[in-house]
Amino acid sequence: MILNELNHHKQTIDKVIAEIIPQIEEACKILIETINSGSKVLLAGNGGSAADAQHIAAELTGRFVKERIALPALALTVDTSALTAISNDYGYEKVFARQVEAFAKPNDLFIAISTSGNSGNILAALETAKKLGCKTIGLSGRGGGAMTGLCDVNIIIPENNTARIQEMHILIGHILCTAVDNLY
Results as ranks from 00 to 15, higher is better:
L43F: 08
E67F: 09
S49A: 10
L71Y: 15
S116N: 09
V100K: 07
D108S: 07
E93I: 01
A85W: 00
P106K: 09
L31S: 02
A53T: 12
S87I: 04
A50H: 00
L109N: 04
E67S: 05
S39C: 12
K40Q: 14
T77R: 14
Q54A: 08
A112L: 03
F64N: 11
D108V: 05
Q99N: 01
G120E: 10
E67P: 09
L42Y: 09
R63F: 05
A51Q: 03
I56T: 02
I32F: 03
E101H: 05
R98F: 05
A73F: 12
F96E: 01
N107S: 05
L109M: 06
Q99H: 03
A44G: 08
A44N: 05
A70N: 11
G120R: 15
A124N: 09
G48N: 14
G47A: 10
A124E: 12
K105N: 13
S87Q: 02
I86F: 14
I30Q: 01
R63Y: 03
L74P: 15
G120I: 10
T80R: 13
F103G: 02
G62S: 08
A82T: 09
N118G: 07
F110C: 04
Y92C: 00
A112D: 04
G91H: 02
I35H: 08
A102T: 06
G91M: 01
V95P: 02
A112T: 00
Y92T: 01
A44E: 07
S116E: 09
Y92S: 02
H55E: 10
A102H: 03
L43E: 02
V78R: 13
F96R: 00
A73W: 15
I32C: 13
K105A: 02
A51G: 12
E59L: 00
